[in-house]
Amino acid sequence: MPKLSDLKKGEKGKIVDVSSQEIPMKLLEMGCLPGNSVRLIQQAPFQGPIYLEVNGSYVAIRKETAKLIEIELSK
């Protein structure tokens, strides 16, 4: 299953599952929940944080966190 961290710039996906134990609550409240679609807007250089649009919110998270979110790629 692809992870959110696999998303490339401009690509979209749909969140399938989040390992809720390790994910900060704040991220869930921003709408990072199963079923919502997500788009990668920008990737900071040197494997830095990623900048996402999810559920109408714009949020930046580190790659480590993105690895905990499973997605389904969409066109």
Binding site: P24, K26, L27, M30, P49, Y51, S57, Y58, V59, A60, I61, R62, E64, T65
Partner: peptide
Amino acid sequence: RSIFVMEMPN
């Protein structure tokens, strides 16, 4: 712990 969540405001 490597946590980092930041809103990117308008």
